[in-house]
Design a protein around this nucleic acid. Structure first.
Length: 436
RNA sequence: GGGGAGAUUCCAGAGUGGCCAAAUGGGACGGACUGUAACUCCGUUAGAGUAAUCUUUCGAAGGUUCGAAUCCUUCUCUCCCCA
């Protein structure tokens, strides 16, 4: 199966330029995708794009991941309603290092001719003078061309519905597409890159690149964009209650990461298992029909969670997440908790907020609200009233036992003479540690 | 420059002197149900208190009144229409 067919059945293909398929068929083609260092970690939205590179490589082509050290300094205006705030150079450098490391996890850098590469556009942009850039690059495209891009229209026009007015676009952000276009040209020139991929919102920026290659060099380069992953209700995908789902285990713990996939709605799991795993078509179809027969078993979510957690983190992290989930959502009661060694307890509750309470505060807290609001310095509950209300609603568990009276004293048994497992609602856990 | 409208608790939006911590809807959170789901239903949604009740809150600051989100004054900001 060639790349296009592969992406098509997976539902990942949005559009590509005429001739792309022929180019890919003609032999090993080098393609790249850029990632701007807007944060020090990539999130699962980026991961969908990374999968494009993975598929490119699996189809026998050569993938290049570009870290946008230069473009990140500018900010991509595509389809954004407002001007973005600029990141400081220290932040950018920190972010670049972070995402470069992550990118390296997903591609094969040692498989002969089509080994992956990572490049940073800062390396070739840093020495460009402003005048040089205007003369060598800017001259080749008209503002008329650049302004026509859908991606910038949002910032130029007052919408007809009157639902807001254009905020305007700075010259800086307007220039973004030129930078990205030049990247493509540079890679075309120096690394024989003929294809740029990306999410569908990058179409405009990518075609600026192919246009630049055509005008400067008379060359022919290609574009292929993937579908933007959205939730079935059309809202942004990749956000959980806690915000973005990051690939960095310090931002989103492997347990939380695993839980995110496990909790997907059925329809989403069906869609996403094709995007985020490399399982072959027959296997996925099998899983889907298996799932439909007994949806409550959530075969799909489990398979998806396993694949992605293992790929992004590790097999060990996956196992630990499964184990933690069983303890937290299984029948585990206080006895199950008591059986855990201190190490295992901490492992299970890794990623769960750890709340320290001094021994004296712990002992002087007369009631549960005192303990969970005051003694924890509002880390579990904002106020005693809130704690009380939730207890009255039956929403508080300590050591997996429901707290039924809000004025009950705190005669709880500390695990390992130190810990208390506090549950606020079903899914919000806190590990209370009594410190001396 | 001229004329008009408005600013309310997370959001939208009622409330025009006491019955207002403030209707209603949304969101969020909790509970029941369930598949750690969806749907549905129920509850909570300023702080303190077991409670009675008290404290802070309706753009800001003053004032009138026994009593103000509601009346008056000034200020700040927003929106609309006409030039």
């Amino acid at each position: 199966m060639n790349l296009i067919e592969e992406l098509r059945w997976r539902g990942m293909l949005h559009d590509f330029m005429p001739g792309t398929e022929e180019q890919l068929a003609s032999g090993m083609t080098t393609g790249y995708i850029g990632f701007d260092p807007t944060a020090h970690s990539l999130h699962i939205g980026n991961l969908a794009t990374i999968m494009l590179l993975v598929h490119l490589q699996r189809a026998g082509h050569k993938p290049i991941a570009l870290v946008g050290g230069a473009t990140g300094m500018i900010g991509d205006p595509s389809f954004k309603a407002s001007e973005r705030s600029m990141l400081s150079e220290e932040t950018l450098q920190f972010n670049q290092a972070g995402i470069q490391k992550q990118l390296e996890k997903f591609l094969d850098f040692d498989c002969g001719a089509n080994s992956a590469e990572v490049v940073n556009n800062y390396d070739w942009m840093k020495d460009f003078s402003f005048l040089g850039f205007l003369r060598e690059v800017g001259k080749h495209l008209t503002v008329n061309y650049m302004i026509k891009k859908d991606a910038v229209q949002k910032r130029l026009n007052v919408s007809e519905e009157g639902e807001g007015r254009a905020e305007g676009i700075s010259f800086t952000e307007f220039s973004y597409q030129l930078l990205q276009g030049y990247d493509f040209y540079h890679l075309y020139k120096h690394k024989n890159v003929l294809l740029q991929m990306g999410a569908s919102d990058q179409w405009g920026n990518i075609t600026t690149g192919t246009e630049l290659i055509r005008r400067i060099d008379g060359g022919k380069a290609f574009a292929l964009v993937g579908k933007l992953v959205t939730k079935s209700d059309g809202t942004k995908f990749g956000k959980s209650e806690g915000g973005n789902v990051w690939l960095d285990p310090n931002l989103t713990s492997p347990y939380q990461f695993y839980q995110f996939w496990l909790n997907l709605a059925d329809d989403e799991a069906k869609k996403l298992i094709k995007v985020y795993t490399l399982l072959p078509q027959e296997e996925i179809e099998g899983l889907i029909s298996q799932h439909d027969e007994a949806p409550h078993l959530r075969t799909l979510q489990k398979a998806l969670a396993k694949e992605v957690t293992t790929r992004v983190h590790s097999a060990e992290d996956y196992m630990a997440a499964v184990e933690a989930s069983e303890i937290l959502f299984g029948k585990g009661d206080i006895n199950a908790l008591k059986k855990l060694s201190e190490d295992l307890l901490l492992t299970v509750f890794e990623g769960v907020p750890l709340v320290s309470v001094s021994r004296s505060d712990f002992e002087s807290a007369a009631t549960v609200p005192d303990l969970l609001a005051d003694a924890t310095q509002q880390q579990v509950f904002e106020s005693k009233g809130e704690a009380k209300r939730m207890i009255q609603n039956g929403g508080v568990n300590i050591n997996r036992q429901k707290v039924s009276l809000f004025d009950a004293g705190n005669g709880f048994e500390l695990l390992h003479n130190k810990y208390l497992v506090v549950q606020k609602g079903k899914k919000n856990y806190y590990l209370l540690a009594v410190t001396e």
